[in-house]
Computed example of a mutant assay.
Amino acid sequence: MLQTTTEMMEGEGPTARQQDVLDAVLRLLVEEGDRLTMTAVARRASCSKETLYKWFGDRDGLLTATVQWQASKVRVPPVDRKGLDLASLTSSLERFASDWLRVISSDTSIALNRVGVVHAGSDKRDLGAIVLERGRFALGRRLKPVLEAGREAGLLEFDDAETAFRTFFGLVARDVQIRLLLGDRLELTEAGIDGDAVRATQQFLALHGAKTGPKAL
């Protein structure tokens, strides 16, 4: 039975060979932007178009898998809801923030988002919608359970998980992504990214950290 793109990405994930193909797509997006074709991907990845169609269905399926593959590089470390403390919650948020900053500052993400913006402003809205659904919205679905676990443990205070997530997202991103998309050559060092992740997490905890201390377990 043909494995769908969603099943591939949300199950065990893509195989090593499929990862090679998705990385080839990302490189081609950097080089060619919206001119990406299945023929070009097959040539770059040294595989047949028949294999691409078998794995991904069509060009939109391939783009969807590529966006999901890129977004999967932003890790959301699992938390122990029963034993969650401030240190483990902070570590989880910092890891998410640093991974996300590394991903959005990469040449491949910049190219992917630029093509998505172009699509969103034209009659070809496919990639713009894919980037939103499989990128930003998917990341929200993955991190919000961590925020809710923090609230259940008495470590965080907020009324709405989506609003809290947007606050954290904004503190992490600041103006970095828009500046990169517009061609600003920001020099984001590894140390600088880690420092920004710590700073954003501390700012978020200052806004939403519980004032009465954690609940008794």
Rank of each mutant, 00 (worst) to 15 (best):
G170A: 03
F56T: 07
F56D: 09
D160W: 05
L26C: 00
D123W: 03
T64C: 04
P214K: 06
A161Q: 05
T167W: 06
D58T: 14
A149M: 09
V76A: 05
D34N: 13
Q177S: 12
R136C: 08
T37M: 11
V30D: 03
D23V: 06
V118A: 11
D184Q: 15
A210I: 02
W100T: 00
F96P: 01
E31S: 14
S98G: 04
L182E: 13
V21G: 10
R166M: 12
P78Y: 04
Y53H: 08
G11S: 15
R75H: 13
G33S: 08
E12F: 15
S48R: 02
A138D: 15
K82N: 14
G57W: 11
T189R: 06
D126G: 07
R27V: 15
R141L: 11
P145Y: 12
D58V: 14
R199S: 10
S109L: 04
G13C: 11
Q177P: 07
A164M: 01
T39W: 05
G116N: 02
T189I: 04
P78K: 04
E152T: 07
D160S: 05
E152C: 02
V172L: 08
K144P: 00
G213Q: 04
T212S: 10
S122Y: 02
A97S: 14
S105Y: 00
W69R: 15
R59M: 12
V79I: 14
M38F: 07
G13E: 11
L127C: 01
T15D: 08
L171T: 10
R125C: 02
S48W: 03
L155G: 06
L2R: 15
V103K: 02
E31F: 00
K54L: 15
S106D: 06
D34H: 12
F168A: 07
A206E: 15
T64R: 12
G195C: 11
P145G: 09
L171H: 09
K211P: 01
D58A: 15
G209Q: 04
R75S: 13
T5Y: 02
D20K: 03
L186E: 08
Q18W: 01
L171M: 15
G135R: 11
F56E: 07
T201R: 12
K54S: 14
E7T: 09
V67W: 02
T15G: 13
L156P: 01
S88N: 03
G213N: 04
R27H: 14
Q3R: 13
S92G: 11
A120G: 08
D184W: 11
D85T: 08
A111N: 05
L112D: 01
L52G: 10
W100L: 01
T51R: 13
L127N: 00
V146C: 05
D107H: 10
A42D: 08
V74L: 09
R134Q: 13
G150E: 05
S109N: 14
L52T: 11
L101W: 04
A197T: 03
R142M: 12
L52R: 11
D58P: 10
A24D: 13
G128Q: 05
G140E: 10
F56M: 08
V30T: 12
T201W: 06
T108Y: 09
F158C: 02
A200I: 02
D160Q: 07
G195A: 15
L205Q: 03
L36P: 06
V21W: 09
A129F: 12
E133P: 00
G121F: 10
R142V: 07
L207S: 06
